[in-house]
């Protein structure tokens, strides 16, 4: 279990990173937390000719609120979110997710942005980013652009990050008042990829009607998917058991998983629905509305 031969560069600045990526083009891969890339290389499933290690770029390790957004840098580890008071108090959806990524050892190294860029169909952060309406900031030699998460997740293991480009940070809009979220996941054991997962974000108005809804599912298609039908059902409605059941059914209908050791298509489709239901109930419960189970 040794990687195939590769060239290794430890970048010391963002500019140097971009120069290395521009020079090596499609042969190069960025190494951040390495929790997916390194195992894939050891199994020789991934054979990048060049690795550009950005672990020395400490300036990319941050969690900060600015301009109505939470910004998470490309070198910010999952564990940083898991232990952050800011995340715990204002971003329950992110707090849930950070505590459910893989296992505690992986979370010490793994990064949020790295997970998004890897875009594994069963990854956690894509689901949460869709429900949370995240944006990704991408830089290349000629400048910086911001891409909505819906456009960022292109296909399995493929994102909007092009050759010679580096994803700098992910941004989540700071939730308005009376907003909560929840991330739910079924896994065979801690550290396994999701059998199914779901994220929900809900904003209620003073009358208890839903004024904002984000719903997404994971391990149910080529990449994390937004359940737009569920979002439309929820928007403007008051939460009821029937409403939640309908939203869950929308997730079942959208889910298009593949069968593997984790379960059959039939089971995973149903779990997508069960978890969307549970995520909605948990999110709304965090806003003090009970009795939806």
């Amino acid at each position: 279990m040794f990687p195939a031969p590769f060239e290794y560069h430890r970048a010391t600045s963002i500019d140097e990173t971009l120069a290395l990526l521009a020079k090596h083009g499609g042969d190069a891969r960025v190494l951040a937390g390495g929790q997916s890339l390194i195992p894939a290389m050891r199994f020789r499933l991934a054979r990048p000719a060049v690795l550009v290690d950005i672990n020395a770029l400490h300036e990319l390790s941050y969690l900060r609120e600015e301009g109505g957004m939470l910004a998470i840098g490309a070198m910010t580890r999952d564990a940083a979110l898991e232990t952050s008071a800011l995340i715990a108090s204002k971003y329950p959806l992110l707090a849930d997710t950070s505590a459910l990524v893989a296992d505690p050892v992986v979370r010490q190294s793994g990064t949020v942005v790295g997970s998004l860029c890897h875009n594994d169909p069963a990854g956690d952060w894509g689901v949460t980013a869709l429900a949370g309406r995240a944006q990704i900031v991408i830089r290349n030699a000629s400048g910086t652009r911001t891409v909505a998460i819906d456009d960022f997740l292109v296909d399995s293991f493929t994102t909007a990050v092009g050759e010679g480009e580096l994803a700098l940070e992910v941004r989540f809009p700071t939730p308005p008042p009376r907003t909560a979220g929840s991330y739910q996941k079924i896994e065979r054991k801690v550290g396994d990829f999701a059998t199914a997962s779901a994220a929900a974000r809900i904003t209620l108005d003073a009358d208890g009607a839903i004024t904002g809804a984000g719903v997404a599912i994971g391990a149910a298609g080529p990449h994390a998917m937004r359940v737009r039908d569920a979002e439309q059902l929820l928007q403007g409605a008051k939460p009821t058991k029937e409403l939640i059941r309908a939203a869950a059914d929308a997730a079942r209908a959208l889910a298009d998983p593949v069968a593997d050791n984790r379960g059959s298509v039939e089971f995973k489709k149903d779990m997508a629905g069960v978890l969307v239901g549970r995520a909605l109930i948990a999110a709304i419960g965090r806003l003090g509305v009970e009795g939806l189970r």
């Binding site: 199994f43 296992d103 065979r188 054991k189 801690v190 550290g191 396994d192 990829f193 050791n261």
Partner: peptide, 14 residues
């Protein structure tokens, strides 16, 4: 089941 991602060994957490 050719590695520990598919042959499961429980951790202290479960």
């Amino acid at each position: 089941n050719t590695n520990f991602t598919e042959y499961l060994v429980p951790t202290s957490l479960e």
